[in-house]
Protein backbone atom coordinates (compact mmCIF):
# COMPACT_ATOMS: atom_id res chain seq x y z
CA UNK A 1 0.00 0.00 0.00
CA UNK A 2 1.52 3.28 -1.07
CA UNK A 3 -0.33 5.35 1.41
CA UNK A 4 0.70 4.53 4.94
CA UNK A 5 2.76 7.69 5.24
CA UNK A 6 0.00 10.11 4.44
CA UNK A 7 -1.89 10.11 7.68
CA UNK A 8 0.29 12.80 9.14
CA UNK A 9 -2.53 14.58 10.94
CA UNK A 10 -4.42 11.68 12.37
CA UNK A 11 -6.55 13.93 14.52
CA UNK A 12 -9.81 12.52 15.72
CA UNK A 13 -12.89 13.60 13.85
CA UNK A 14 -14.80 16.56 15.21
CA UNK A 15 -18.31 15.92 16.46
CA UNK A 16 -19.76 17.40 13.29
CA UNK A 17 -17.45 15.32 11.09
CA UNK A 18 -18.24 12.08 12.92
CA UNK A 19 -21.94 12.81 12.82
CA UNK A 20 -21.92 13.57 9.13
CA UNK A 21 -19.77 10.54 8.24
CA UNK A 22 -22.09 8.29 10.19
CA UNK A 23 -24.98 9.63 8.15
CA UNK A 24 -23.09 9.27 4.88
CA UNK A 25 -22.30 5.69 5.77
CA UNK A 26 -25.92 4.91 6.60
CA UNK A 27 -27.02 6.51 3.33
CA UNK A 28 -24.35 4.58 1.45
CA UNK A 29 -25.60 1.32 2.91
CA UNK A 30 -29.10 1.84 1.53
CA UNK A 31 -28.09 3.65 -1.63
CA UNK A 32 -24.50 3.08 -2.72
CA UNK A 33 -23.32 4.67 -5.97
CA UNK A 34 -23.41 2.18 -8.82
CA UNK A 35 -20.08 0.38 -9.31
CA UNK A 36 -18.76 1.01 -5.80
CA UNK A 37 -18.52 -1.09 -2.70
CA UNK A 38 -17.54 0.10 0.73
CA UNK A 39 -15.28 -2.38 2.45
CA UNK A 40 -16.26 -2.58 6.05
CA UNK A 41 -13.58 -1.51 8.50
CA UNK A 42 -13.84 -0.43 12.07
CA UNK A 43 -12.74 3.07 11.20
CA UNK A 44 -15.10 5.86 10.29
CA UNK A 45 -12.11 8.02 9.46
CA UNK A 46 -10.68 5.85 6.69
CA UNK A 47 -12.89 4.27 4.09
CA UNK A 48 -11.69 1.67 1.62
CA UNK A 49 -13.87 1.58 -1.46
CA UNK A 50 -13.88 -0.96 -4.24
CA UNK A 51 -14.32 0.55 -7.70
CA UNK A 52 -15.51 -1.42 -10.71
CA UNK A 53 -14.71 -0.08 -14.18
CA UNK A 54 -17.93 0.77 -15.96
CA UNK A 55 -19.14 -1.45 -18.81
CA UNK A 56 -18.24 -0.27 -22.33
CA UNK A 57 -15.30 1.79 -21.12
CA UNK A 58 -11.55 1.18 -21.17
CA UNK A 59 -11.77 -0.09 -17.60
CA UNK A 60 -14.56 -2.59 -18.01
CA UNK A 61 -13.96 -5.66 -15.88
CA UNK A 62 -11.13 -4.00 -13.91
CA UNK A 63 -11.25 -3.46 -10.22
CA UNK A 64 -9.52 -0.79 -8.14
CA UNK A 65 -9.43 0.38 -4.57
CA UNK A 66 -9.82 3.89 -3.27
CA UNK A 67 -8.60 4.98 0.12
CA UNK A 68 -10.49 7.89 1.59
CA UNK A 69 -9.11 9.62 4.69
CA UNK A 70 -11.22 12.23 6.41
CA UNK A 71 -9.71 15.24 8.14
CA UNK A 72 -10.79 16.43 11.57
CA UNK A 73 -12.89 19.21 10.08
CA UNK A 74 -14.59 17.31 7.31
CA UNK A 75 -16.65 18.42 5.40
CA UNK A 76 -15.19 21.91 5.71
CA UNK A 77 -12.03 20.30 4.36
CA UNK A 78 -11.89 17.80 1.53
CA UNK A 79 -11.03 14.19 2.31
CA UNK A 80 -7.79 12.79 0.94
CA UNK A 81 -8.66 10.37 -1.84
CA UNK A 82 -6.07 8.14 -3.50
CA UNK A 83 -6.01 4.89 -5.41
CA UNK A 84 -4.35 2.00 -3.66
CA UNK A 85 -2.10 -0.37 -5.63
CA UNK A 86 -2.48 -0.78 -8.55
CA UNK A 87 -4.06 2.51 -9.70
CA UNK A 88 -5.84 2.62 -13.04
CA UNK A 89 -3.81 3.70 -16.05
CA UNK A 90 -5.23 7.11 -16.70
CA UNK A 91 -3.78 10.48 -17.82
CA UNK A 92 -4.91 12.08 -14.54
CA UNK A 93 -3.89 9.34 -12.17
CA UNK A 94 -0.30 9.03 -11.04
CA UNK A 95 1.36 5.70 -10.47
CA UNK A 96 1.47 6.42 -6.70
CA UNK A 97 -2.31 6.62 -6.68
CA UNK A 98 -2.68 10.39 -6.53
CA UNK A 99 -5.59 11.72 -8.53
CA UNK A 100 -5.59 15.03 -10.35
CA UNK A 101 -9.19 16.05 -9.91
CA UNK A 102 -10.12 19.61 -8.97
CA UNK A 103 -13.02 18.78 -6.65
CA UNK A 104 -10.61 16.96 -4.32
CA UNK A 105 -8.58 20.10 -3.85
CA UNK A 106 -9.31 23.70 -4.91
CA UNK A 107 -12.89 23.05 -5.97
CA UNK A 108 -14.01 21.13 -2.94
CA UNK A 109 -17.38 22.09 -1.50
CA UNK A 110 -18.79 20.81 1.78
CA UNK A 111 -22.00 19.95 -0.05
CA UNK A 112 -20.12 17.13 -1.78
CA UNK A 113 -20.09 13.64 -0.31
CA UNK A 114 -18.13 10.43 -0.65
CA UNK A 115 -20.81 9.28 -3.07
CA UNK A 116 -20.49 12.35 -5.25
CA UNK A 117 -16.68 12.03 -5.22
CA UNK A 118 -16.98 8.40 -6.30
CA UNK A 119 -19.29 9.33 -9.15
CA UNK A 120 -16.86 12.05 -10.29
CA UNK A 121 -13.94 9.61 -10.25
CA UNK A 122 -15.87 6.97 -12.16
CA UNK A 123 -16.94 9.52 -14.72
CA UNK A 124 -13.34 10.61 -15.07
CA UNK A 125 -12.34 7.00 -15.73
CA UNK A 126 -15.23 6.36 -18.06
CA UNK A 127 -14.53 9.33 -20.29
CA UNK A 128 -10.90 8.35 -20.80
CA UNK A 129 -9.86 7.51 -24.36
CA UNK A 130 -6.35 6.38 -23.64
CA UNK A 131 -4.72 4.24 -20.98
CA UNK A 132 -1.61 6.16 -20.05
CA UNK A 133 0.08 7.83 -17.10
CA UNK A 134 0.28 11.62 -16.89
CA UNK A 135 3.30 12.94 -18.81
CA UNK A 136 4.94 14.18 -15.59
CA UNK A 137 4.37 10.94 -13.71
CA UNK A 138 8.03 10.14 -12.94
CA UNK A 139 8.84 13.60 -11.71
CA UNK A 140 5.69 13.89 -9.63
CA UNK A 141 6.03 10.50 -8.00
CA UNK A 142 9.68 11.19 -7.21
CA UNK A 143 8.66 14.42 -5.48
CA UNK A 144 6.16 12.57 -3.37
CA UNK A 145 8.55 9.94 -2.09
CA UNK A 146 8.70 11.46 1.36
CA UNK A 147 5.06 10.55 1.79
CA UNK A 148 3.55 13.83 0.78
CA UNK A 149 -0.21 14.01 0.64
CA UNK A 150 -1.79 14.92 -2.68
CA UNK A 151 -3.58 17.64 -0.75
CA UNK A 152 -0.24 19.41 -0.36
CA UNK A 153 0.40 19.37 -4.08
CA UNK A 154 -0.12 22.60 -5.92
CA UNK A 155 -2.21 21.10 -8.63
CA UNK A 156 -2.24 22.52 -12.06
CA UNK A 157 -5.29 20.79 -13.32
CA UNK A 158 -5.16 18.97 -16.58
CA UNK A 159 -7.92 19.96 -18.92
CA UNK A 160 -11.07 17.97 -18.43
CA UNK A 161 -11.34 16.78 -22.02
CA UNK A 162 -9.75 13.46 -21.23
Amino acid sequence: MSSSGYGQKEKVLSRIAANRLQKELTEWQVNAPCGFKHKVTDSLQRWIIEVHGAPNTLYEGEQFHLQVDFPEHYPMEAPQVIFMQVPPMHPHIYSNGHICLDILYDSWSPAMTVSSICISILSMLSSSTVKARPPDDDRYVRNCRNGRSPKETRWWFHDDKV
Binding site: I16, H73, M76, E77, W108, S109, P110, A111
Partner: peptide, 18 residues
Protein backbone atom coordinates in the same frame (compact mmCIF):
# COMPACT_ATOMS: atom_id res chain seq x y z
CA UNK B 1 -23.56 28.04 11.74
CA UNK B 2 -22.36 25.50 9.20
CA UNK B 3 -22.83 27.82 6.25
CA UNK B 4 -21.03 30.63 8.08
CA UNK B 5 -18.12 28.31 8.78
CA UNK B 6 -18.01 27.37 5.11
CA UNK B 7 -18.02 31.02 4.01
CA UNK B 8 -15.24 31.74 6.42
CA UNK B 9 -13.04 28.69 5.82
CA UNK B 10 -13.77 27.35 2.36
CA UNK B 11 -14.85 30.27 0.25
CA UNK B 12 -17.44 32.90 -0.49
CA UNK B 13 -19.71 30.73 -2.57
CA UNK B 14 -22.93 28.79 -2.21
CA UNK B 15 -21.75 25.24 -1.44
CA UNK B 16 -24.28 23.67 -3.76
CA UNK B 17 -24.63 26.07 -6.65
CA UNK B 18 -21.18 27.70 -6.35
Amino acid sequence: AVLMEHLQKVGKFDPLTR
